[in-house]
Amino acid sequence: MRRIQRNPDVLWREEDEQRDQARNALEQGDDAEDIATSLLFNNGVMLSLNILGTEIWKLCDGRTTEEIVAELLTCFEVEEDELSADVTAFLNELATKGFIRYGE
């Protein structure tokens, strides 16, 4: 199983205010998809991630995709298959852009 690591050259920051705003929205059953809660910067490319993207990013510490999905299921109320597909697609995008690396 491939383990996923953040590229150590990526500079990133979690936006506390926006994270609290997103959490409040989720608690009230509102959509938080468009609230950017973190910023990533690598090699001139900047990405902003919503709360789910940020949580996935923070879990890229040597875990496998399956371990990341399992962890997220404890925090977000979503179907496992749907979450797994979303996480896999998101990680592939991060890998393509050089923000994460797949290892053994």
Partner: peptide, 8 residues
């Protein structure tokens, strides 16, 4: 997602 206006 657009970066938009940043607080910092």
């Amino acid at each position: 997602m657009s970066l938009g206006e940043l607080a910092r």
